[in-house]
Each structure stands twice: as C-alpha cells, then as structure tokens.
Design a protein around this nucleic acid. Sequence first.
DNA 1: ATGTCACTTTACAAGTGA
Length: 263
Amino acid sequence: MLGRVNVVTWNVNSIRQRLPRLIAMLERHDPDVVCLQETKLTDDAFPFDELRDAGYHSTSYGQRAYNGVAVASKQPIETIARGFPGDPVPDEARLLAVRTGDLMVASVYAVNGKSVGDAAYEVKLAWFDALRSWVSTLDRSIQVLLAGDFNVAPDDRDVHDPERWRGKNLASEPERDRIRALEALGLIDLGREAAGDTTGPFTFWDYRAGAFHRGWGLRIDLVLGSAPLASRLGSVEVDREERKPTAGEGKPSDHAPVILRLR
DNA sequence: ATGTCACTTTACAAGTGA
C-alpha cells in the first residue's frame, strides 16, 4: 500500500545562504523527499547535521563554488548515480540519482548555456543528449522522477513573454527538442500535466531588473516522471511566496520551490 | 533586457556565472 508522498525540488542558489529558509520550507511543506540544486559546496561542508535535526537523511554530490546537487528524504537513501556517462562536463556536479522509499529520484541541474551561439550553449545541448542516453538505460516501468532546474522553458506557456524569449537561451527550439526527447522516452512533464493549458506557473525570476516584481518569470524547474509515477499525480504547486524577500530569514533564491504531491 | 546575488581570489575590488 503506497501512501501519499510529497516531493519538493528547489534550486537554492547556495545552501549556505539559504539554510534558514530551507529549514523553514521543510517545516512549512513537510516533504518526504527534497531535491536541491546549486548547493555550491563540497560534500564535507554539506549541512547533514542540520538536515538530520530536521528529520531528514541526506546525500550530497557537491563541488566548490558552483553547481552541486543533493537529495534529502525522511526515508533512508541509497545512492544510484553521481553524474552520468558521456557528460561533456564531468567535473560539474549536476545529477544525483538515488533510491528512497518506493521512488527512484534524480536531482538535476542542467547546464545553463549562457546564450545561443556561445560555446556553453553547445555544451548544454550535448549535456542533454548524454542525459537522454542515461535515461534510456533506466527501467521506466518503475517509479522514476527527474526533478530539478532544467534551464529550459519547455514551450511558450512557460515564459512570461513568448515573443521576447523566442529563440533565446532557456527557450530556444533546440533546447525544447531536448526536453521533448526526454518525453519521447516516456517521461511526463508533471508540472504541465497538473497545470493544464495555461501560462506558468513560473518557478524562476531573474534577480536583476526587478523581474519578480514585474512578473518576468519562467517555468524551468521541472518534475519529469515515468508513467507509473505519473499515475499517482496529485498536484504540482509553486511556493512563489518563498521568492519574496520578506518570506523568511535572509535573501530569497531566484528559484521558488516546486511541490509535487503523489497519491 | 537586466534595477542582483553568490562565489572566488597572489582578495579588502573585480571577475565569473547565473
């Protein structure tokens, strides 16, 4: 008998800076599983003790200063993968896959790509191709979840101003093709599934230009589930309050937590 | 696009990445 399970994914943009807000988020949403991105610290500096005190096992795949992904869970965690074969930037900590409870969960932080035409953009596309190859090796007849910051707005409903973003990094067609390639393997965009044919909900607002205040958001934090997992879909919500400077101690991340509820 | 933030360093300002 499977119980209700809540999963949160959140790009915290430095777990050191965000720790008080992270602990408050855990108390607010009481998630069973949490996927974190941009922890920006090495494993030896990860706040395992603070998370344990909050009731969570946790596992980190980190690095100094940049990137870094982690998973926390109320259930014990078995690490499945740190990174994946063929990653064009293997020194960058961008994927941590685990087994916890009855789920296989990967915390994902995709290459940003900087801008279309930049060398980093080509790396981004190659990174997604390698990710696709790895996903193709997974048993997708079990409950698999890829959760994290994919740095791609899958279609025009996922950007505040489609014309302004047309062809730009985070919204370009080659990037969107990479998301569709993951969907072609049977993964389902649960955020879109839950939202239906509407705009948003957005998960990221640039720190600059007062983007949050002006509503200049993007939906780039995704929860992609295998069919057996999607069959348990309850809801997907964005905690946009958390993006506000006033929402907690210290400053907000530029990403809001995404809460996936499974039946 | 860019009114910011977080990181680093032959560091105490400036470059990088987002």
